[in-house]
């Protein structure tokens, strides 16, 4: 049933079926998200600048989600010798890097009008910048070795070590004084975002996730073909 998660052939079969419907679904959700943003209200303090949130938060979420998935796959790939995990690492690292960059740039553009600065070295901003560098190193390792078996193991080990950064990013705003705000949405309390702003945020998060998923599927398929050729 869940064989497509570790078996390249089953993965190819399933994604051949769902790729097209997924594409249309994503287009619809993205359009709904954009319409909701257009009709979303201005914030009581930030005015219309608050709309940067609808790009900033989804890309931050995807930057962390991509790395979490890579971590899980790396652990299982190393422990249980599942080569599909290595394929995932090579395929999705650039996607995570791009979303991290989008997060950093949109955050910087948001910080200038609201905080009064493009960048400060507070714990949250610094840890996300480190995440971006970690992604870059993974991409560089990916292009730096001739032997695939050596390369993929080094990447997987590096991904697992780099995942120490994930809880630090998540809890940096709670553990230390930061200029960045604490989380607006958490499991323990009701969200401190008004429903009229939460709806477009959720729609955009879904849309971004699906866009990331489509690119990931295409890149994983490419990676499978490349590896079959090289063997």
């Amino acid at each position: 049933m869940l064989g497509f998660l570790i078996n390249p052939n089953k993965f190819n079969k399933l994604t051949d079926i769902i790729l097209k419907p997924l594409f249309y679904l994503t287009a619809v959700i993205f359009l709904i998200g954009l319409i909701l943003i257009y009709y979303s209200p201005n914030d009581y303090q930030q005015g219309s600048t608050v709309r940067i949130m609808y790009i900033h938060v989804p890309s931050a979420w995807l930057a962390l989600l991509t790395y979490s998935i890579m971590t899980i796959y790396s652990i299982f790939a190393l422990a249980f010798r599942i080569p599909f995990g290595f394929i995932i690492n090579s395929a999705v690292a650039p996607i995570g890097a791009v979303f991290t960059l989008v997060c950093l740039v949109s955050g910087s553009l948001w910080g200038k009008p609201m905080w009064g600065t493009w960048w400060v070295w507070d714990a949250r901003l610094t840890s996300v910048a480190i995440l971006f560098i970690v992604y870059l190193i993974i991409i560089f390792i990916n292009y730096s070795f001739e032997k695939i078996e050596v390369k993929e193991k080094i990447i997987a080990i590096f991904v697992v070590i780099g995942s120490i950064n994930l809880p630090i990013i998540k809890f940096s705003v709670d553990w230390w004084n930061t200029l960045h705000q604490p989380a607006s949405i958490s499991k323990l309390s009701s969200p401190s975002i008004d429903p009229s702003m939460l709806k477009p945020l959720i729609a955009m998060t879904l849309a971004f996730t699906f866009i990331g998923l489509i690119i990931a599927i295409l890149r994983i398929k490419t990676e499978i073909i490349l590896r079959k050729k090289s063997i």
Binding site: Q45, G47, W115, G116, T117, A183, S192, I193, M197
Partner: peptide, 17 residues
């Protein structure tokens, strides 16, 4: 020498305020 404004985690439409 430098002043940064900090905003909190609350978001609310201006019309409600």
């Amino acid at each position: 020498t430098n002043i940064y404004a900090k905003h909190d985690e609350n978001y609310m439409p201006a019309s409600i305020k």
